[in-house]
Nucleic acid binder design. Structure first.
Lengths: 212, 212
DNA sequence: ATTCAATCGATACGAAAATAACGATAACTG
DNA sequence: CAGTTATCGTTATTTTCGTATCGATTGAAT
């Protein structure tokens, strides 16, 4: 039976982790409460946006006081599923792949990279950030066995499509694609295109705009 | 006098580079024309979106034929300012910083990283991807002299704010922030928050959604 | 030459996000 | 204890984005 059209908003999902990070800093500083306005100002956002984002997670604040920081952190984590363990595999041990492997933001937020793959025989067998690099051929079976659902793709664009197909074969349900190539995947597989050039294009236009 | 409300759309700016990359592949394969529908399918987009995006750049197609690939590439480059040379500096030579320095997508699209900085004395003076790492203290003056407008920030979040302040001092107009921290900058400075955790959160939700 | 089909381009519509407005509540003040 | 004010939470408005519809144009087919 069809589930009641589960709603999620990408803009909100992108902002919540930023709040979360800042809130943890505040918590470490010993603060206990914060108003939506202060949170908003720290990210150059409108206060209303923050209040609505937080409302979505189920957080409730108190007038004249704000939100309890510890509670906020908890509800955000629950909303994002960061209390459960999320898992993925990474393919492509170049500079970018290594950088992502070392990104603390993942391990800190309940995301674990189960396995690392590369097509380069020289890299296979070596250790990267404490994980052994496996040959691509092992990807499908390993993902199937571990029920891995997320694949991080940091290979050159010439290999992107073929690796994506291996991921699909392995039952991967969502691909985070850092290559600029589009991926041709069956329906039912999510592709998140992480376009660095696109982000830069946005920033460049913003700067041009400022100069007038 | 106020310039006529220059309009730009972030979603469009994020898609255009993807088209551009694909079009260059096609060109190398010897193709000369392409329809919006084919382009759309390659990125799992609606054909109407592609047509409207291309219309925005000033490209014109011919019925029953499509768009001329070489012309498309040119108009996209003009629209994005990729024909002019754009420049920036990068601060933070960790894994991520190195990865961005090596990213071909930048050099290929007319974006040049003029200088690289790090606070670590052990890194200063070394070469990374053919560029010498400079001490942070030199940042403001160098940016002022070169009129650098873009700053790429790939330092740990504890240093993000102080580096941002140096960038502002150096006349930087747009900061591409890869740290999860918010940046407190004066009005008139653009900050593009590149939230990796946020992107991952979006993908995880999409995958959850698929499973129903 | 006429018909047909594919593709573009423009207009119109709907959904989603950001912004604004306003009433409600709880702490502080005198 | 009453008034004031900061802050929340809801509803409404506007803007932006994506989608649908439809006529116009051009190349191919008959």
């Amino acid at each position: 039976m069809d589930d009641k059209l589960v709603k999620y908003s990408a803009p909100v999902l992108r902002r919540l982790p930023m709040y979360h990070h800042f809130l943890q800093q505040l918590k470490h500083q010993g603060l206990t409460t914060i108003s939506a306005a202060v949170l908003a100002k720290h990210f150059n956002l409108d206060g209303i946006i923050v209040r609505k984002d937080l409302a979505l997670t189920g957080s409730v604040g108190k007038p004249r006081v704000g939100f309890e920081i510890a509670g906020l952190i908890k509800t955000i984590e629950e909303y994002l599923g960061w209390n459960k363990l999320n898992r993925g595999v990474l393919v492509g041990c170049g500079n970018l792949g290594k950088a992502l492997l070392g990104y603390e933001g993942f391990s800190q937020n309940g995301f674990n990279i189960d396995a690392v793959f590369d097509s380069d025989p020289l890299l296979v067998g070596t250790q990267v950030h404490g994980k052994e690099v496996l040959p691509l051929s092992k990807l499908p079976n390993l993902c199937l066995r571990m029920h891995t659902e997320i694949g991080i793709l940091t290979v050159p664009s010439s290999q992107a499509q073929s690796v994506a197909e291996l991921m699909v074969e392995g039952g991967i349900k969502g691909i985070w694609n850092f290559s600029p190539s589009g991926l041709n995947v069956p329906r039912g597989i999510a592709v998140l295109q992480q376009s660095l050039a696109g982000s830069l294009a946005v920033l460049v236009k913003q700067v041009e705009d400022i100069k007038k």
